Computed example of a mutant assay.
Amino acid sequence: MNIDMIVIAQVIAVLGLAIGGSVLLASLNYPRHIRHALQSYAYAKLLLAAAFLIAAFRDGMATEFLVPLANGLASAAMSLNYVAVLRMQNKRTPPRLAESAGVLVAVACFLALRISPDDLNLVRAISSLVGAAFLLVIAVELLLLYQGRGVAHYMSGGLIVVNLLALVVRIWANAAQIGPSDNLAISDAVERGVYAVIFLSNIIGAIIFLLMASDEFNKELQVLANTDGLTGVLTRRRFLELAEIEFRRAKRYGRPLSLLIIDIDRFKAINDRAGHPFGDRVIKAVADCCATNLRPEDSIGRLGGEEFAILLPESDLEAGERIAERIRANIERSVGVLGAEKALAVTCSVGGVTLSPDHDSFASLIEQSDAALYEAKDRGRNRVHFAKAAA
C-alpha cells in the first residue's frame, strides 16, 4: 500500500470512529427498535474503522494474520449494515450474522494467503465478493421490501448501489490478475476509486441513515398519537377524523354506512368488585373481541372509559344489525370467561344507526346511535338496538 492510500485509509478510519461514536450517542434518544438499528449501524462503522486502521499500519508486520483480520472485520461491518436495516423495520435478524461473516471471510483470506503468500488480489476478490453480496441484499431490502419507504430510503438504496458497482469493478480488476503482484492491486486507480466511494459513503450514508431513523420515529409518534394505549384501537380523536371522512364519502356517493356504539354493562360494578386492573383487562378483552369480528375496511375507536364506536362502511341496516349481534354474542361468550374468574358477568349493550338521507352530519349519527344504546340499556342490557331514521 503506497503512501497516499495509507493516508486515505487513515482518514476513513478516523471518520468511521467519529461517525460510529456520534451515532451511538444519538441512538440513546430513540425508541427500542430504532435505537438497536442505530447501534448496529454505529458498530458497523467502528468495525470498518478498525479494518482500515489495520490496513493502514500493517506494512512490515504479520501480513498473513493482519490481512485476514482486516477483511474479516470489514465483512462483519457489512453484515451489521444489513442487520441495521432489518432492525429499523423491527424485523427479525439472523443470529450472530456479523460474527459468522467475519470469521468465515477471515479464514478464507488466511487460506488464500497460505496458498499464495504474495497474492493479495485473491484476498481482495474474496472480501469484495462477500461485501457485494451483502450490499445487494441491503439494496433489495431498501428499494423493494421496505414498507412505507420514502425519499431517505431511496437515497440510501442508491448509495448502496453505487458501492455495489464499485465492488463489482474491484472484483473484476483483482480477479483478472490473481497471482503474485507485489501486494498491489492491478490498478491503483480502481483501488483509489473504491476508497473514495467508501469515504463519501461514510459521510453521506450516516446522514441518510439518521434521516431514516427520524422518519421511523415520526411514524411511531403518529401511531402513538392515533392509538389508544390500553386497547390498541383508535383514539377518539382519530376515529372521529376517519369517521367524518367516511361519512362525507357515503353521503356524496349514496353508499350505505352504519355506526355502532358499544358499552360494557355495569362496568362500575366490575371495577368496584374486582379492582381497576381487572377492569382494564375487561376493556382490552372487549376491544380485542370487537376487532377480531371486523372487516379490514371497518374502524373501531375508544370513545372513553368502557365505550367504543365502530364504523361499518358499505353496511346497510341488515348488515349492521347482523355484525352488531355477532359482536355482542362473541363478547358474552369469550369475555364472559374472563369475568368468570371473579364470578362476574361481562356483557355489552350495542346501539346502532344506519345512514339515511336525513342525516346532515356525522354528529347526528353519533347522537342517534347513543340514544339507541341507552334504549338497549333500558330494555335490559346485553342486547342490540338500532335507531330509526332521523325524522
Rank of each mutant, 00 (worst) to 15 (best):
162 V>Q: 06
173 A>F: 02
175 A>Y: 09
190 V>G: 05
163 N>Q: 15
169 V>W: 02
190 V>P: 02
170 R>N: 11
181 S>G: 15
167 L>C: 05
172 W>L: 11
182 D>F: 04
183 N>D: 09
174 N>G: 03
178 I>P: 08
184 L>I: 12
167 L>M: 14
177 Q>E: 14
179 G>V: 08
180 P>N: 06
163 N>F: 03
172 W>A: 13
186 I>C: 09
189 A>H: 04
184 L>S: 11
171 I>G: 02
179 G>L: 09
169 V>C: 09
186 I>E: 09
177 Q>T: 13
168 V>W: 03
176 A>S: 15
169 V>E: 09
190 V>Q: 12
178 I>F: 00
178 I>V: 15
180 P>I: 08
166 A>F: 03
162 V>C: 05
190 V>D: 14
187 S>H: 04
183 N>H: 11
173 A>Y: 01
167 L>V: 00
180 P>T: 08
162 V>E: 02
179 G>Q: 08
166 A>C: 06
170 R>A: 09
175 A>E: 03
185 A>E: 13
162 V>H: 00
178 I>Y: 02
177 Q>N: 13
185 A>T: 15
185 A>M: 13
187 S>A: 07
188 D>F: 01
179 G>I: 10
185 A>I: 07
170 R>W: 05
174 N>F: 00
170 R>C: 05
164 L>Y: 06
189 A>F: 07
165 L>W: 06
171 I>C: 06
174 N>K: 05
181 S>P: 02
170 R>I: 03
174 N>E: 07
189 A>M: 07
178 I>Q: 04
183 N>L: 15
185 A>K: 01
179 G>K: 10
175 A>M: 08
178 I>H: 02
166 A>I: 07
190 V>F: 00
187 S>F: 09
179 G>T: 06
164 L>C: 11
187 S>N: 06
165 L>P: 07
175 A>F: 08
184 L>M: 13
172 W>E: 12
175 A>D: 06
184 L>F: 12
181 S>Y: 07
173 A>R: 03
164 L>M: 14
171 I>N: 07
173 A>M: 06
162 V>G: 03
176 A>I: 00
186 I>K: 12
182 D>M: 10
168 V>Y: 00
189 A>D: 10
191 E>T: 15
